[in-house]
Computed example of a mutant assay.
Amino acid sequence: MHKTVDSSRVSISQLMQPSHSNFSGKIHGGYILNLMDQIAFACASKHSGAYCVTASVDTVDFINPIEVGDLVTMKASVNYVGRTSMVVGIRVESEHIQSGNKKHCNSSYFTMVAKGENGKSIEVPGLILNDKTEVLRFLKAIKRASTKKSRQQEFNHASFTLENYLEQLKNYRVKIELPTDY
């Protein structure tokens, strides 16, 4: 069975209140992450027809701050499916209600895994890609997974040695003071 990307799209909007703000008066990033996790769950569950859990979150860059009184809208869609997992892309925008000015606040990718009644991972429906943007998002998800796997292999491999990387660190604001028996 396959489902279209459109069939599981989810959008939510919420007015940001003072109780959501941090000490500098901006909306707390943790609050936004909580909302993002909720919409990722809703989108993945809608696609899979099952309870879903967050397996990982890939890159959350807070581009623009969100102000108290802004209307925040989050849009989510399934960008990629594996056997039991889905990558949900989320876009966060804020709108100043009085002026109508909108700004992109962040985008992120949540990997969600579908779970059955017994708590074991279950197979999810395939994905029908029916426009160029959907194909591009699927390909980007494959590339992100490949890059992550390469990075893990590079740094977790048995042949990894610090000596191969210490020269690169000279260009950074770091002082290396390793014991002689590291």
Results as ranks from 00 to 15, higher is better:
residue 100 G to W: 08
residue 94 S to W: 07
residue 5 V to N: 06
residue 159 S to D: 15
residue 142 I to W: 01
residue 146 S to P: 00
residue 1 M to I: 14
residue 176 I to F: 04
residue 71 L to V: 12
residue 99 S to N: 07
residue 89 G to W: 05
residue 79 N to L: 09
residue 22 N to L: 04
residue 110 F to A: 08
residue 61 D to Y: 07
residue 162 L to V: 09
residue 156 N to S: 15
residue 6 D to Q: 14
residue 120 K to V: 00
residue 22 N to D: 04
residue 84 T to P: 03
residue 93 E to M: 13
residue 143 K to D: 10
residue 3 K to I: 09
residue 95 E to V: 11
residue 65 P to Y: 05
residue 113 V to W: 06
residue 70 D to E: 13
residue 34 N to W: 00
residue 103 K to H: 10
residue 145 A to N: 12
residue 93 E to A: 10
residue 162 L to E: 02
residue 116 G to T: 08
residue 129 L to M: 04
residue 45 S to V: 03
residue 80 Y to E: 02
residue 79 N to K: 09
residue 58 D to H: 08
residue 134 E to M: 05
residue 33 L to T: 11
residue 34 N to H: 03
residue 123 E to P: 01
residue 50 A to C: 12
residue 2 H to Y: 07
residue 68 V to L: 05
residue 39 I to E: 01
residue 70 D to G: 10
residue 142 I to Y: 02
residue 151 R to K: 08
residue 46 K to R: 15
residue 27 I to E: 00
residue 162 L to D: 07
residue 110 F to V: 07
residue 14 Q to W: 01
residue 54 T to F: 13
residue 161 T to F: 04
residue 12 I to Y: 00
residue 115 K to I: 15
residue 75 K to I: 12
residue 36 M to Y: 05
residue 6 D to R: 15
residue 100 G to H: 04
residue 82 G to H: 03
residue 181 D to L: 11
residue 130 N to T: 13
residue 32 I to L: 13
residue 2 H to Q: 14
residue 38 Q to R: 14
residue 121 S to P: 10
residue 148 K to A: 10
residue 82 G to A: 06
residue 147 T to V: 13
residue 12 I to T: 14
residue 141 A to T: 14
residue 134 E to W: 01
residue 42 A to Q: 12
residue 4 T to V: 02
residue 90 I to K: 08
residue 37 D to R: 10
residue 166 L to C: 05
residue 30 G to M: 08
residue 173 R to A: 12
residue 108 S to T: 15
residue 159 S to Y: 06
residue 17 Q to H: 15
residue 137 R to S: 10
residue 173 R to H: 11
residue 34 N to Q: 04
residue 177 E to F: 09
residue 120 K to A: 06
residue 132 K to W: 01
residue 165 Y to K: 13
residue 150 S to Q: 09
residue 168 Q to E: 15
residue 158 A to C: 07
residue 26 K to A: 03
residue 37 D to Y: 13
residue 106 N to T: 14
residue 15 L to Y: 03
residue 154 E to N: 09
residue 144 R to V: 09
residue 37 D to S: 10
residue 60 V to D: 01
residue 159 S to K: 13
residue 65 P to S: 12
residue 102 K to E: 06
residue 109 Y to W: 07
residue 140 K to Y: 05
residue 117 E to Q: 11
residue 156 N to H: 13
residue 21 S to W: 00
residue 89 G to M: 05
residue 145 A to M: 08
residue 163 E to R: 11
residue 176 I to P: 07
residue 39 I to H: 02
residue 161 T to K: 15
residue 59 T to C: 01
residue 29 G to C: 07
residue 54 T to P: 07
residue 15 L to P: 00
